[in-house]
Design a protein around this nucleic acid. Structure first.
Lengths: 104, 104
DNA sequence: TTTATAGTCAACCATATAGTTGATTATCAA
DNA sequence: TTGATAATCAACTATATGGTTGACTATAAA
């Protein structure tokens, strides 16, 4: 079953966010993904593995190449989680003063 | 400076999400926060510390009690990050087919 | 003053994370 | 067939994370 904390944990790393930004452009192979980083391909592959395990990335093999593709659903659900709480905070009278406080 | 991955990392734990849910209700003391969990107060205090360091929680001392209050701005920014990419994916022609694929 | 409550602090443990390297397998292309 | 490219695997290191306990300090309340 889906648990939003896994999505947040997967997003909680600068390298992985950069990978996601690349995959938002287009499907990308592992070696191409690793290229811009000053770290080994093994390390990047591990990051992709963490994204895949969280359901954020799908890996497809064609020939000797592994192509990575973004899966947007978990991020949509994570956004929804934030959205729900955002609404709740804004409507919660007890916290309204606090909320306004923070706008300064 | 603000970096969204710190917010995501702070959100990437079930205990901390539960703490946030409680703080969305009202300002809560550390001991009160720790109460519902089957872990030591020290452990809960550490989680709150991580939330505080990520700017998601503010701690105020009154008497011997530490009251924790939610700070919504970082989560608003995290939501924006997701929102921006969401829009981008939906408008990206190259990925439209992939996106629709995932709707099945 | 005594006792209970709120919380901190330091030390420790187990496991996960983020990275490395070197050797190996699989595939493509000359 | 030979060599380059794509990627995996195993082993290892260092540090961070999530938790514990026991002793301590600070504050409130009887």
């Amino acid at each position: 079953m889906y648990q939003v904390e896994h999505t947040f944990a997967a997003l909680g790393d600068a390298t992985r966010l950069a990978i996601i930004q690349q995959l938002a452009e287009r499907e990308t192979s592992l070696s191409e993904l690793a290229n811009p980083f000053s770290m080994s391909q093994t390390a990047v592959t591990k990051h992709v593995g963490i994204l895949a395990q969280a359901g954020l990335v799908e890996i497809n093999k064609r020939g000797r190449t592994r192509y990575c593709r973004l899966k947007t659903k978990p991020m949509q659900q994570a956004e929804q989680w934030l959205e729900t709480y955002q609404k709740f905070w804004k409507e919660n009278l007890n916290n309204l003063a606090n909320y306004l406080d923070q706008e300064e």
